[in-house]
């Protein structure tokens, strides 16, 4: 497998700046995210404090970001990363497409997760709760599962599950109409909590009704960082890192909203720059040490 120098997760200002800085430093990068870059930038009305681009709209800023990427020939790989494994001297990244990627270092620039995790979601992750249908579906062959889906992009995962599981209930948590195949049952209720009881996963909705399954899949655009990177030190919704953007895991860096307040585009971009330079320094020192 081709191993990258730096894998960057996220295509907001932090991730993009990290990608540009790493490209200038001639690193082999993998930029993971969306070709539409960032909803949060795209939806910004008027940004007044972005240096050199006064009074720019979110849409225009996004356009400028894209032009900047193009000028460096940077490609975006559209795959949702569901887990980052620290293997000791490299990282393995698992995509929801079923692909794996390997990289010497990782920069987490996923943005801060909006919306709360469900009660019990983190507690039972890996024990009746999963974030990746492609990865865990075979465990639920002929069994009853539910999909709690926060993103229209992810609804095809329910169709995929319906080919393997015995039954699939689908809880759409997004505004658009859902469009799943006939063997998937749409339940238009709002789950509020998940618990495990007697080897079943119980979903409770806002009305207080309960539904029992063998397993529940929770699909979101972004995943809480401690769940994304097993072993990563976090504080609330944020990743703990120092001013070099270094986390508690060697070779893993974070930047942007995910590191904490203030949530500002220019702060994110600045942190992306630091994270990339720190990743470069880490790679270079590793190379030096291996030569000695």
């Amino acid at each position: 497998m081709d191993r990258f120098d730096i894998a960057i997760i996220g295509t907001g200002p932090a991730g993009l700046e990290a990608a540009i800085t790493a490209s200038i430093r001639n690193k082999k990068i993998l930029l993971l995210g969306s070709k539409n870059l960032s909803d949060k930038v795209e939806k910004g009305h008027l940004i007044r404090n972005y240096l050199g681009l006064p009074d720019i709209s979110g849409t225009d800023l996004s356009k400028r970001f894209n032009e900047h990427l193009d000028s460096f020939g940077i490609d975006i790989t559209e795959d949702r990363i569901t887990a980052v494994y620290s293997m000791g001297d490299y990282f393995s990244l698992q995509g929801s497409s079923g692909s794996f990627y390997e990289s010497e270092t990782v920069i987490i620039a996923t943005g801060v997760m909006t919306g709360k995790v469900l009660d019990g979601e983190s507690e039972y992750l890996g024990n009746g709760v999963s974030y990746c249908a492609t990865c865990d579906a075979p465990l639920y062959r002929k069994k009853a599962v539910a999909v709690i889906c926060y993103s229209k992009h992810e609804e095809s995962e329910a169709d995929f599950l319906s080919e393997i599981a015995g039954s699939v209930d689908f809880f759409p948590m997004f505004k658009e109409d859902s469009n799943v195949n006939d063997s998937v049952k749409v339940v238009s209720k709002h789950p509020v909590s998940i618990k495990r009881d007697n080897f079943k996963t119980i979903v409770t909705t806002s009305e207080g009704n309960t539904y029992s399954y063998d397993g529940v899949f929770v699909l979101r655009d972004s995943i809480a960082p401690s769940n994304l990177v097993p072993g990563l030190l976090t504080e609330g919704a944020h990743i703990v890192c120092d001013r070099n953007m270094k986390t508690n895991i060697d070779g893993c860096f974070a930047c942007g909203d995910i590191t904490g307040l203030p949530y500002q585009y220019i702060k994110s971009a600045g942190e992306g720059n630091i994270a990339a330079l720190s990743a470069c320094a880490y790679i270079d020192s590793k190379k030096r040490n291996s030569k000695q």
């Binding site: 887990a83 494994y85 620290s86 293997m87 890996g126 024990n127 009746g128 999963s130 097993p230 072993g231």
Partner: peptide, 27 residues
Amino acid sequence: ITNIPCLVLLKNGVEVSRSVGFQPEPN
């Protein structure tokens, strides 16, 4: 076993702890 990987720690054949999911080496 409902989710894997599941690591079960046994002392003299009796389960004392289990850990579900990937963990880096130090953890």
